[in-house]
Simulated scan of single mutants.
Amino acid sequence: MSDYAQMDLNPRGGGVKSESPLVRARINVVLAASAREAGVVVREKPFLGHLVLRGNAQDEGFRAGVERVLGLALPLALGAVARDESRGVSLQWMSPDEWLIVVPAGLEFEAEAALRRELSGHYAVMNVTGGQTVLELTGPRVRELLMKCTPYDVHPRAFPVGKGVSSVFAKSSAVIRRVDEERWELVIRRSFADYLYSWILDAAEEFGVFVAPAEVARPASRGAERELAAEAR
């Protein structure tokens, strides 16, 4: 007789729940009938332009060049997000020498070219559009949802409107941004997108969750495209 210790990894009885490795992708969530009835509304904002900018924040020329291209002053403090809602442009502090730029769909090429034209010296700008997406969370129960997902303090005293941080989210990570009182954004990596989306739907089910159609944010006017194109030339 063998002394080998054998274990049943898929028991049929005893109240033990077995889960497939793809259980998160096949999650069965009861959705609210409408956004009005939901405590949390989830909407993807796909195809936005994402750029990572690095440079010396103490360099006045670097700061001025960024502001000429984006129309936003370079944030210089932890958690600061500069945003122009009318043009769909945001600029977020990520570390002392790194910022995340988000622009409307289709403007990332022009934005990168314009930055390369205006900036000089030691800097780097990388187009990471294909590697990230944005989830918008709205509704009266979003903060409670976030409390289940991240150890970061999302109370208004610690997380006011206009703040953004990179933090642990679920068992992965996300950039969390508070746009207004009941509207938040998550910037998530492509490789974790399916997992985090399923996690959010599962965590939000108790509050009533509604999935809104994806929103592709285009420039508010062709003027924004022309401005960036002019800087790029």
Rank of each mutant, 00 (worst) to 15 (best):
S86Q: 09
D202N: 11
V175K: 05
L186Y: 02
A204C: 09
S86F: 06
G164M: 01
H50W: 11
E110A: 13
G71V: 14
A174V: 04
A203F: 03
Y4K: 10
R36I: 04
L107Y: 03
M94Q: 14
S95T: 13
Y197F: 14
A232I: 13
K45C: 10
L135W: 03
E112Y: 02
L201W: 04
E19R: 12
D84M: 01
R43T: 14
V42Q: 00
A105F: 14
D3Y: 00
E206G: 05
P219M: 07
P219L: 03
V41K: 02
M126W: 09
D8S: 01
E67D: 13
R226P: 05
D180T: 03
T129K: 11
G106A: 14
E231T: 06
I200D: 00
E136T: 02
V66C: 11
F169W: 04
V216G: 12
F109N: 07
R63Q: 12
V179M: 12
R26M: 10
Y123I: 00
A82V: 00
L196K: 04
A174Q: 00
G39C: 07
F169S: 01
L186C: 09
Y197G: 04
V216W: 08
S20L: 15
S90V: 08
N56D: 15
V179R: 05
R54P: 08
R178H: 10
F159E: 07
L48H: 05
S191M: 08
F47D: 11
C149T: 05
A111G: 11
G88Q: 07
